[in-house]
Design a binder for these strands. Structure first.
Lengths: 151, 151
DNA sequence: ATCCTGAGTCCAATTTATGGACTCAGGATG
DNA sequence: CATCCTGAGTCCATAAATTGGACTCAGGAT
């Protein structure tokens, strides 16, 4: 958005109907998206997540439970040889559907807060081209500026 | 992600290099993205934001200051007739660049936590087609599943 | 019987959030 | 001039969340 354009009065969505507000109620804290990052990396174990992101156990435990409760992750038993049954956490389809949001935030951070090359260069498995989160319309146009958005 | 696919060991980005972690340090709390939502709506005034999102004044004040400090928003003087000079807040280009992330979260919330129609149907100003946040590769393919992502 | 390990819980100290009362500046009003 | 009004805050006490460290617990291995 240009610093000086006069934005018309918009039709704002009240918070109790707003998808963003609802999403933030579930994942809008300092740890949950990092936990989901781990899940997208394929990390499923409590201790491994904890080692990666450094969240206090209490917080990790509480967040995983609430992610399970709200249907973004599933808690599944697993057993390694010589070990008793334990539990691991996996994304559900609903959780996996957050990937574009997560990538969008990550790439924003890489662009604006990074030093040098982005540490993760995502690519399309089928054609090898690099991938970014973007706004696209049904006709396949990519919007490169908020101004191109209506309503 | 399928519940049962075996994900290979991924190359994880350490938190201190991770764009997501850095982004969350700035905007990863329960209010900041709502404040940015207001900014995208075109709302610039403290009291108007407060009325919309219901944040305590203390929090709104502190968050706006930190958004300004980190370069996502600018604090600009303005004057209405018959009123003294006051200040308003606007997105910088850096802040505006968060739009895809914000839309991605909002649409996820609308899809998975909404009741009925999404309250906000964004459209491409030029062609009128509806717009969504997605992962796209340089060749213009839209990724519809995390599996299509490599690295 | 004891050790080990992943996955937690418990707890006290600190930090952050909340909402209501209060402040402050300066133009308008009388 | 004295007072009112308004947007944009600050102050404060209470409540909630976060932190890191110590502790627990289950069950297979030794």
């Amino acid at each position: 958005m240009e610093p000086n354009d006069t934005t018309p009065t918009p039709n704002r969505v009240p918070l109790d109907k707003c998808g963003l507000a609802r999403a933030l109620a579930l994942i809008g804290d300092r740890w949950t998206l990092l936990i989901l990052r781990e899940a997208f990396y394929g990390v499923r174990r409590f201790e491994e997540m904890r080692a990666d992101i450094g969240a206090p156990r209490t917080v990790l435990s509480e967040r995983l439970a609430s992610l399970v409760e709200s249907g973004l992750m599933e808690r599944e038993p697993y057993q390694e040889r010589g070990q008793r049954t334990r539990f691991e956490y996996r994304l559900t389809a609903q959780g996996a559907d957050l990937l574009p949001a997560l990538v969008a935030l990550m790439q924003w951070g890489d662009r604006h807060l990074g030093d040098g090359e982005p540490p993760l260069d995502l690519r399309h498995a089928e054609c090898g081209a690099s991938v970014r989160a973007a706004l696209v319309c049904e006709h396949g146009h990519i919007l490169s500026h908020p101004r191109e958005l209506r309503r």
